[in-house]
Structures are given as C-alpha cells and as structure tokens.
Design a protein around this nucleic acid. Structure first.
Lengths: 349, 349
DNA sequence: GCCCGTCGTCGAAGCGCTTCGACAGTTTGT
DNA sequence: ACAAACTGTCGAAGCGCTTCGACGACGGGC
C-alpha cells in the first residue's frame, strides 16, 4: 500500500487516487462511474474495488464544473407559517423523495426571496431546474423564469405560463365532482365554504378555478347554490355559515374548500345542534388525513400533494433529458365517500 | 463592445470576460469579489461596473472546487407527515432565513435517508455543515457525524453528543416553569398530559427531559402530581384524562405537553362541563400561535422554533469560521400568561 | 488477406474560479 | 536617507472531474 494522500491520514481520495490504485487512467475511472463508454468487466471490477477501498466520492463541485450538471433542483416554497402548512409539507416531502429517487438533491428556497432568489441560484449554476409552488395569477416570477437557462415546473396554474410546465390538481373538476356527488344524493341547495379572502387576494388561482368550476357545475346541474369565502378562526366560520344560511335558507349540504375552517365548522354545527350528515351533508376538499382526523369521517376530495409533487419532479426529469412534456397537467380529482353525506329523499327536493 | 462570448447571444459571462471588460486580470476581479486583498477604489468601480453590465454571477461549482467552500448547509428534517408538522416547518423556515442572511443556502434532506444521506452530501462536498433535527437518544447518525469533515449542529439533545454542538429549548426548565406558575397560583394537584407513547418510543429526548423536570420540580415544590402519555385523537385524550382523574382525584390543573391533544382536550372538557380556567387550569407547551388559536387563550410556554433554528445557524457559522461555540445551548423557556390559569384560594389547598 | 468498424483504454485539454508568490511603487520609521 | 513595510496588481498553478480525439487490438465481411 503506497504512502500516498489517500491512505495517509484524513485526506479525501480523488479520482486520481482511485485510478492509481486500480492501475488505470482517471478517465477510465470516470467512464466506469458514468457508464458512458464500454469498460471491460475486469477493469470495472478493479476500479470499483479501489473506489470502495478508498471510500471515494466524486466532488460535487468539480463534477458540476466539468459536466455543467449539478444534480440539484431548487424547490421554492412559501415558508410563511400562515396557511396550509401540512399541504406544503407534503409537497416538499414528495419532491425531495422523488428527486432522490432520480439521484438529485433539493435546494430549499423561500418564496419571499422572490425573483432575486431564483436568479441567484440559476445564474450561479447551483441547480439544474426549479420547482415553484404557490403561484399567483400574475406571478412576477414567471417572466424571470423564462429567461433562465434552467427549466422550471410550477405547482399551480398562473394566468400566462406559456412555455413553462405546470402541474396541479384540477380544481375545476374537483368542484364539479363535489357537486355531482351531492346532486346524485338528492341535494339541491348547496353552500360553498371557500378559502379565506386572503387567498383570493393573494390571487392564488386554485381558489378561482374551484369557484368557477363550482358555479359552472351548479348551473349545469340546475342547483341552487351560494358561495362565500371564510375568514380563519371560529368567528370567521360562524359569520360565513350564517351568511350562507341567510342567503340560501334550507341548504342541505356544504362543500368546504378550506382546511382550517373544517374543524371549527364541525364544532359549530354540533354546538348548534345540526348533525352531520343527518341534518347537513359535507364534502371537503383537503388531504386525506385531514378528512379522517375529524369527529365525523368526511367524504372528501383529496388534495394529492404527494402525486403532484412526484409528478413535478418527473416533469423536471423529462425536461432535463430533453423528452417531451405536457405543459399543463391537471390531475383528475378523486372523491372518496366516507360518512358525511346522506341521501336525501326526493320528496325533499 | 468586442464581439466576445459575453456580449454575443446567450453565453454566460465568466470571470475572464469581466476581467477583460474591466481591463484587469481575473485575479483582481476575484479580489474585488472577495475583498481578500486591497483593491484601489477606481479599479474596484471599474470591475463592479463590468460585472453589472455583463450580468456576471460566479459559478458555484467552480467556486466550490477552488475554494473548498460551498456556502450550502444541509438541513435534515423528519419529513414524515405524522407529527408536529407546524413546528418542523418553523424550524425549517428559521434555518433557511438565517442561512440566507449569512449568504448560505440550504440543501434539504429527509431523515429517512439516514446515515447514508449525511455521508453522501458530506463526502461529495455538497455542503459545508449540517443541521439535524429530531434526534433520538442514541441516534445512530451521531457516530457517523463525528467522522465527517464538516461540522454539524443538532436541534435536540441526544445522550452522547460529545464534540457536537446542540441547541434546544430547555424542556426540563420548561416543565419546572409550568409547575412553578401553577404552584404560584395555589394549585397543588396537577396532571401532566404528555406526548404520545410513540414519541417516547422514538426516544426523542425532549419528552424525557420534560418529564424529568416535571417530576423533580413536583418533588421540590411538594406537589401532588400524576403524569400520563396521551395517544392522538379524541379517544386517546379521553382515556388520558380519565386516567389522570382516577389516579389523582380532584386535580385542579393540567400541564399539556402535546400540541395535538390540546384541541380535543378542550373540546372534551367543555363537553363534560369543566370550564377553563374556572374549574381547571391549563398550561400548554406549544408554539405561541397554537396557544392563541384555541377557544380559550392558553397560558403557555412557547416552543421557540424560530429562535432555535436561528441559533443553530449562528452556531454553524461560528464553527465554520473557527470561533468557539457552546456545545450545549439550552434556551430558557418563557411562560406567557393568558387566560387559562386561575388563582386558587388557599382554603382549597 | 485487407479494410473497416468496434471495443477498451489513455492522455490532454479544459470547466471557472481562488490563491499564492512576485513585483513595482509608495509610505513609514528612525 | 535607507531599510522595512504596505499597497495594488498580475500571472500561473491548481481544485477534481468530464469528455474528446487518438490509438492499438480484434473480429467480420468480401
């Protein structure tokens, strides 16, 4: 065993050390690693043995410099603590997991670094691609994204995303599915408990897409419906519910597109003696685990954060190796029946 | 304007382009950027102008290769969706924000990649340091961390962390503070609603530290106390409360070290006609916003995720530039009085 | 039996940046 | 007035890897 850097205390072995140990040239080691050229079985074995013995790990920076690939993707997440924390977290988890399964790592950026953050990591070549979540209708970051040499994938659906891939749940179809389910159970007077006004103000389009789908389906199915945003907190829920009741007396079902309102809403209904589903049916739009963590197991349309996150990564990978992608990919909603909707006899119609 | 790569379509300018444009050598540009050698004001101005004009951004990989610094720190987060999501998120937010303010970025790893993940990013020199959260008493990752050339900082306090910096809330002191507060209000019979058994099983030490602090303080203050873990869900809470009531009849106060139990607990108390604080006082251990989002504004001991995250990053920075650090830094708990504790008249003692 | 294509390997040229030593010119100390 | 110490800049040598072209050794087609 030669007394070189690799075997002497501490120093990190390089590809040259491996090459020397295996009796080949550094380029051969590189080709063993990348598989970009044929290498004989014996040589490969020797190289791999040397790699294992020396504990060699290629230097990411050097690799990035030489190959113009970092194997890192940026994930831009809204890290304010106000809304939707569990959903954000599910997205992030899915993205990291999926990225790892494609041998990539994830650099976490906050949304509040804004355009500057994107440009910083892109221009300095820290990442190969970007995934953004929580996009607003006219998100200022989009023009900037178009100028980057790295591709990006959006989780969400801003107004003009020409040339940028988007993935999201089809919220319009989700609203329709909710109404169809309720209509199918005989409900005719239905209220929508929407997201908080802050969400509409922020112009995150999922709220509008849901609302539009809701109104369209309502018309087509010939339902009587009324919609209302819902401020967070017990008070907001109380106000929202009372507005709905006033504007559409005798409603028999609620579609709730507001995770945080769910708990106080159920509390309130219980407190005022309205049983779910006997007196009022509910379809929620929320992650599965939220729906099942309520006092009543809620019939719900899942927000498939995991699938969306995974799909975003798949799309990134396709873009990175030049395969074609669909530029707008909206996932079909899936409604799961649980215990919060009851059949209304037709006489009630 | 010369027709070189930098001005011609698309190509990314390098430090050489900047040097040429400013009429200096590349090393001078580098020194302007790093400030590691004195540069005359005029030269500096010219270089900066060239940088701005060309839109130059140093290549992160090249920089990492040449300087052996990546300006990236790894954050290893428990991305299972089960527990404590908001707290995790607060840690992450704080870490990213603090890291950015020190000109570093954050690479997000999941805990479930385990030791291999740490070693991968460390050996391949993707990061300068690591921050880990959710450490278990005898966390398998610790020996591995010791072998890395990068320093690490733990959020949590495993059994043997010799040589590795740890930051966390002082949960022992938190328990003591809760009891002192209640004792100060005349309470003598107090129950602890602890974390779920899963937390104890996972051997995350904060649960034990809290429990130990609780028992010690209980003895010193000469209180009658009883403690119980609490399974998640309404049922778990019901069982826990009934156990506590049975084992210590007539208890007048509860310390709740279990965020998720809080809501169902309050519901349950209300449903069984026990008013807070008139019939029973509560001190919660949870993030501020959880305490204030309850039907009753809870007197609470804050889990200062933001401060802990920030401190973790500060510690990393000190380690990176070779300053001394405290190897165990436990933050003083701070109890905020709100509306869930009442004074008990001495006759009740 | 000769030309050509493939296989397996090597050497060398970068990738874009940092940093060390050198050096000319300018201060400072005495 | 002269050595010593700065100041401000440059050139060159890497950092550790990938990749391109070259080249010898083979094997197949005609």
């Amino acid at each position: 065993m030669p007394n070189d850097r690799a075997t002497w205390g501490g120093a990190v072995p390089t590809i040259n050390d491996v090459a020397r140990a295996a009796g080949v040239s550094p380029s051969t080691v590189s080709y063993v690693l990348s598989g970009r050229r044929p290498i004989s079985a014996e040589t490969r074995a020797r190289v791999q043995a040397a790699i294992a013995e020396l504990g060699f790990h290629p230097h990411a920076g050097a690799r990035a410099l030489a190959s113009s690939k970092t194997n890192v993707i940026a994930l831009v997440a809204p890290l304010r603590v106000d809304v939707n924390v569990p959903v954000i977290m599910q997205f992030a988890t899915a993205v990291v997991t999926a990225a790892r399964s494609h041998n990539h790592d994830v650099l976490l950026l906050t949304k509040d670094e804004g355009t500057a953050g994107l440009e910083r990591v892109a221009h300095s070549t820290m990442v190969d691609a970007l995934i953004l979540m929580d996009l607003e209708r006219d998100d200022m970051r989009i023009p900037s994204l178009r100028r980057l040499k790295q591709p990006s994938v959006l989780i969400g659906l801003p107004a003009d995303h020409t040339g940028i891939a988007c993935v999201d749940l089809d919220f319009g179809a989700a609203a329709r599915a909710a109404l169809e389910h309720l209509a199918g159970h005989g409900h005719r007077r239905i209220g929508l408990v929407g997201p908080s006004p802050a969400v509409y103000r922020r112009q995150t389009t999922y709220a509008d897409r849901f609302l539009t789908g809701f109104l369209d389906a309502s018309a087509e199915l010939d339902l009587r419906t009324v919609t209302h945003p819902c401020e967070p907190g017990t008070e907001g829920v109380r106000a929202c519910l009372s507005d709905l009741d006033t504007e559409l007396p005798g409603l028999t079902a609620l579609v709730v597109h507001n995770e945080e309102a769910l708990r106080p809403l159920l509390d309130l209904l219980q407190a005022t003696g309205r049983r779910v589903p006997e007196d009022i049916s509910i379809v929620a739009v929320c992650p599965r685990d939220v729906a099942t963590a309520m006092p009543v197991n809620l019939t719900s349309i899942d927000i498939p954060a995991h699938d969306v996150g995974t799909l975003a990564v798949e799309t990134v990978m396709r873009l990175l190796d030049g395969r074609r992608v669909e530029y707008t990919r909206l996932l079909e909603p899936s409604l799961v029946e649980r215990d919060s909707c009851r059949e209304i006899s037709t006489s009630h119609r």
